[in-house]
Design a binder for these strands. Structure first.
Lengths: 122, 122, 122, 122
DNA sequence: GTGGTCTAGACCACT
DNA sequence: GTGGTCTAGACCACT
């Protein structure tokens, strides 16, 4: 489900990018799946079509989606490989953060509580 | 235990800083505890006294230790507060990393395995 | 000199990107050189500030320029390395094209004439 | 002269197609000239006759050669027109590459050196 | 109907 | 003054 929070200080188009990227990388959007049209999503979220366009353009640049002018925007057929690369990258970043946290005095118990907190709220 | 790894590409004085800081923040060194003298530590680790001096100077700048000329270097009496601040900071960084990892498709199971790996090797 | 051709079917923002990139890579713009402000360039070229903004944003993404909000846009300090990489890439592409042209029956004489035509018009 | 390089990662039948096409378009093979038979060429190059057959079939599809069952394979009578079209196409591609190279900072001197390198080794 | 481009103009934070 | 974001709305080519 694509949503935006107008009160968030993060720009709307960045929220859209992160939101759709997360859905795609998380496997909730299939290769070649048709995304809502620029105008349709703009109407649904009550934001300007230009803002949707900006987000879609950046996602296309990232290779997450592709655009067929006149047809619409679609999830990339390579989304599986992109997701795998993202997972590897985030795993390494997480490993480094955990090591730094351990060095900084964060206990295993506290790290575990944090982990439950992040993953538990679904 | 203070050690250095000559093969590591990280500069020795940075290894020393991280090493001592980690010991202090982790509660393994008490307030006002006397650190090894520059010459003694240099001899033990077989490295140049200037390198030890450089590390101690930076640790003093960070407020982790204090120096009494003619007496030696000692763990700061405020080390508890410094450690608490460090712990809060690292906890927040870890929270952000975990959230990014989750968004990036890292499963709770994989994050948990990573956590055991980091904390398990003691 | 930055210019646009309204009659060209290539989008204005792409013309701007290519134009500025070519000037920078060709060594006509120095590291940290201050580019015209979004509004100033928009006024000079009689086009909308949003179009300038779009071009500047893409050039920043490419690493050709950097932006200091409130200060302006500047040529990247790494422009020399970017230019060198671009030169290497274009040299290899040109080599492949020349080989294909030779195989396709283009004579050395015709290739030479073409070369004079491209480089002669300055 | 028709040759293949077994160490090249390009498939042999593609090497054969490019090789014969280049000879024909370059004017080294005349209209209606008789090509070596499948078996004869297979023997000469020590490769499987099926591979020769595959290359000849593709060349016939391209209109470069024609086949008379029981007689053999021959260069198309239209090879002159095919060559002229190929030459025009490659000339335009070369023009675009040269322009891109110039924009990418490749000097006329370097382009000239490249040209000598490509055409000089005959 | 759809994406892509562009204009006109507003507001914001920051220098 | 400057870049960055966003709205409102138009026009185009293409399906």
């Amino acid at each position: 489900m694509i949503t935006v929070d107008m009160r968030d200080r993060k720009p709307i188009y960045e929220q859209l990018i992160d939101n759709i990227r997360t859905l795609a990388v998380g496997g909730h959007l299939s290769p070649d799946e048709h995304l809502p049209s620029v105008r349709q999503l703009a109407a649904e979220l009550a934001i300007n079509p230009n803002t949707i366009q900006k987000a879609y353009a950046e996602l296309e640049r990232q290779g997450v989606i592709y655009s067929l002018p006149g047809r619409g925007n679609f999830i990339s057929p390579d989304i599986g490989a992109i997701a795998a690369a993202e997972r590897r990258k985030q795993t390494e970043l997480l490993r480094a953060s955990m090591q730094a946290a351990k060095n900084g005095g964060v206990t295993e118990k506290d790290a575990l509580t944090l982990l439950r907190e992040i993953y538990g709220d679904e």
